[in-house]
Design a protein around this nucleic acid. Sequence first.
DNA 1: ATTAGGG
DNA 2: CCCTAAT
Length: 671
Amino acid sequence: MVLKKRLPSRPISFEVPVVPRAPRSSRRRVQHNRIADCKHLCPIELLASLAGKLLQESESSSASNNASDENDVLALCENGIKEERQDVDKPLKVESPEQGSWEESTSIAERCSECKELKCKFENYPQAESDHSQECTSVISGAKPVVCSNIELGDPCTRSFAGILDDGKGDVSLESANRSSFKHLFRDRAVGTNDPEIKLRKRLYGDPVRLTSFSGHKTGTNLVNRDDDKNFSRSNKRSNRIKSFRYHQKIGDHRTRKLLSSKYWRAAPKLWDCDFSKADGDAKAMFVGYKRKALLKREQHPGGLLYKKRKLLDRSSIITSDGVISRESNSNLLQKSLHIDKDILLEGGTFDSVSGSQPLHRLKDANVKFSIKSLKIPELFIDVPETATVGSLKRTVVEAVTAILGSGLRVGVVLRGKKIRDDSRTLLQSGFSCEENLENLGFTLEPVLEKSQQLVVSEDPPLAVPTEASHQLISVQDANVLNIGASDAVAEQHPLTDPCDHVVDNPREDIPSITDNSVDNNSPDCTAIVPLAVVQMEPLATVPPDQKNKRSELCQRRIRRPFSVTEVEALVHAVEEVGIGRWRDVKLCAFENADHRTYIDLKDKWKTLVHTASISPQQRRGEPVPQELLDRVLSAHACWTQHQGKHNAKQAVRKMVEAEVGAEGIKVGGS
DNA sequence: ATTAGGG
DNA sequence: CCCTAAT
């Protein structure tokens, strides 16, 4: 046969060099630093007292009292900045899921020219969002999307709702305030023009709505989500936002969704380095700015951006499993335990893509150093009867947290939204490149607990979709619960996004990963410090652990390892030798020692090679394959395809012969 | 466990 | 690369 003539008697065996394993110690460095600082305690106290007052009055009064309340607030704030009513309303409106597009928000921000900080945060907003996109799925159940718009009221140091009440009035019974009262206090009032709290916050921190959005990132303090009359969940605000989107954003803001779940989801660059540059007020411009500021170059993730719907779901669930306890917890314990700031510093040599033919000597010098900016504890699922006192609620939370911390936490590594469970893998093998993937790296604090903790059993079961009934509950529950009911909707709404490579909370970014070419690679900081400290935790399982792990495991996509020319050549040789359709043999023949190349991979590669050979060179991507090899691919493919039957027959014969020989050999050996 | 294909 | 159906 023609092919045979030029084929070596034996296929070229391709061997993959062994990748040295990096010392585990170098893989991560976690520094426990400081507890979040709460500089604005005073204002908080103020709010607390105000809240208490409002609470008392709310029963008998409604909007009519807002004016007086406002006056009170104003009286307390001497340095407040006068703001127009419209300013108050607009931000809220912007936040509203239904209309919540970043563009709108931006315009609002623009209007608030006085709020430098706001603007600053605004600019970073995309980052912030993306930073925790993995947590997207970690949503507080029962939180109405609508409420989300008002959640942002919290300021950097705001405590949980309960905390506020408590601060102001001690053990205030939640029951004392009926639902409508709460509504007035935390939702309706917030929306209202005269809402004292909003104004106060504005005075103190600028636009309250916006501040909340970023507060967590910037200050490392907690965010308070006063999202619902009934749900005082403390969770990642972003989570709420996302959730709301999922529920209501039928008319999706594609851009937003993409932002949340796709390429931005994992970026966490410079979140803590607030840039006070002025927002230009243009959403696009802001986004551009974001990209421009990106510290890291995102890895080109050819196949990672778009995942199948199913994949998304899986990932979503995974990410969801990564609940987050916002650092803004009212609990001191939480704050102390959870506020771990760190800086991620990446330095060292260059990582080569893990290509079998890549030189390895460089790897030895490639050290990755990083610090973790923050660690978050998994979300807790806590249902508290409405008759519970705030004090009891606080205690409950503390107990829950204590329980978790007490039982120990383990650190998980998330790369591109996927958990890297194989501890034996090196960073390199895991696809961790200091140059490319830092922003895709995240850590999780995973409770060792097997069961979710339902600290308090309430009369109302957790609701996947908030209903009036949920108003009676104070719950911080596992996003998983929510997602169960919303998974479909989510899938439909995010068909093109990659959570993982959004991950993750997403669940992460990937978790979904998601990189896309649009990512700015020109960032001067690309290889600089990478603040990628998206720490996530698996929420206490509300779902059987094994299930979660299973899912997580399934979602752990292998790192991409482009075939090198050497490998391609080996493959071509092998195929020329054994023919197509016998990938196991090809594997044994030329890639026996390349554990990362399965026969399926080889088959796939051959498929792509055939395709590559059939397209114009201009259309080809990646490392160029010598035309000579491509020609051989085509000829070999044609040959084997054409004579498949014949060859199969021959192969069958050969096998029989081999078998006989083997048998004889055994006989001989035996005798 | 492999193979074949679609995604 | 992933996922599956079919062997």
